[in-house]
């Protein structure tokens, strides 16, 4: 699903953010991307989301070389990817329902299809009863779950999460990770960037460790 071939990224011709990164993530696979702050995790995710282009090497997602995409094609590619942020980035002036419906409206889903999908996504994150609420009245954990519902509502084949549990307590973090596990079992490819060892070590998934822009370890983890 995701393929990095000798990928390097240099900012402003000086700062080397990634260097010779090689890995493949199969469809339906889930992996953690770990490393210290500034190691290059966010750059790697930005490359997958098409927000940056590689200085050298090739980034392929579902067989498409992302450097060949631009404009409308790039926008269409992003509509097939789900994104979860550390800060859920919800629109305060929209209801929970409308926040979750955003990707569907952007993708051009029909108004008859939207309620079914939004209700299904909200029920998957146990927030069906909060559909009409404003995100402002929700707790941090609930807001993060709205963010997850928004990321999966259009049933993406790839889900990318950047520090999704960064603002959550251990109990909520575990709950969020359980959700990701469920999505993976449904066939979604998931890449979770995190620097929280407890989260990574709690689940038996592949671990990509990145340090100073280099992929230093790639192996299966064992749940403790």
């Amino acid at each position: 699903m995701i393929e990095f071939e000798s990928v390097a990224k240099v900012y402003d011709g000086q700062r080397q953010a990634l260097s010779d990164v090689n890995f493949r993530l199969a469809p339906g696979e889930m992996a953690f991307l770990t490393g210290h702050s500034g190691a290059g995790k966010s750059t790697l995710l930005r490359l997958i989301l098409g927000l940056e282009t590689a200085s050298s090497g090739v980034v392929r997602v579902a067989g498409t070389d992302l450097s060949t995409l631009s404009g409308e094609k790039l926008a269409r590619y992003r509509r097939r990817v789900g994104v979860v942020f550390q800060d859920p980035n919800l629109e305060d002036d929209l209801s929970v329902y409308d926040n979750v419906a955003l990707p569907l409206r952007i993708s051009g889903f029909s108004e008859s299809e939207i309620p079914k999908r939004v209700n299904a996504a909200l029920s998957r994150v146990d927030l069906s009863d909060q559909a009409d609420a404003s995100p402002r009245v929700l707790s941090g954990g609930q807001q993060q779950r709205v963010g997850i519902a928004r990321a999966i509502v259009h049933r993406p084949a790839l889900l990318v999460a950047d520090e999704p549990t960064g603002n959550l307590d251990p109990e909520l973090s575990a709950r969020v990770m359980r959700m990701f596990t469920q999505f993976q079992q449904l066939g979604v490819t998931i890449l979770v960037a995190t620097h929280e060892r407890a989260v990574v070590e709690s689940l038996p998934f592949r671990r990509l460790v990145i340090e100073n822009g280099c992929l230093v370890s790639d192996g299966m983890g064992v749940a403790r």
């Binding site: 989301l49 927000l51 404009g71 409308e72 926008a75 269409r76 590619y77 992003r78 509509r79 097939r80 990817v81 994104v83 980035n89 629109e91 955003l102 990707p103 952007i106 993708s107 928004r150």
Partner: peptide
């Protein structure tokens, strides 16, 4: 800016 970045990530075209 923040909102535009979010919309971009959700696949909104520049026209949208």
């Amino acid at each position: 800016r923040r909102r535009i970045e979010l919309y971009t990530l959700l696949g909104a075209s520049r026209r949208f």
